[in-house]
Amino acid sequence: MSLIGANFRRDIEIHRYPLLVYALVPLAALVVQAWLPRILGQYAYFDLPLVVTIYFALGRRSPIQGTLMGAALGLFEDALSHLAIGLNGIAKSVAGYLAASVGARIDVENHTIRVALTFLLSLLSGAIYLFVSRFLLGLEFEWNWFSELFKAVGNSVIVLFLFPMLDRLQIRD
């Protein structure tokens, strides 16, 4: 029983990071997301702001912080595009909220769970984007689900390398 209790306490442990990490990692994600497609061209199947949102939401386990970070990064992404500001904001707000809510209930240190969660949240984020733009706003544009699928796979692959790197930045007691 004590063993179960120790595992549970470890699972619900809130990760803390230096303040600079909270500022620089999201900014770096935005910059790299904007710059790397120039090099990779049409093969840039990833969404680094979403990956960073999921990481901090899982680590902090706070739905409010996950929502706020998702909204901020999504709004910045929208602002860099020529589309309406708020489409990515809504999608990533929901993704951050769900990631934090799920992170409070499962073992988020497990790589398989991290990868699976990122894959599902990437698809969900795309679905929310499509729902808001096409059904709520009535905008007409084509949608490519294959592209979203590849993006979800790309995000899952990035998680395998990025999350362990970011884990090293957290403050340990």
Binding site: P37, R38, P49, S81, H82, L83, N144
Partner: peptide, 11 residues
């Protein structure tokens, strides 16, 4: 020097 980072917005 940069893009929008989104394939929905090709800017």
């Amino acid at each position: 020097f940069g893009t929008s980072g989104s394939d929905q917005s090709r800017v």
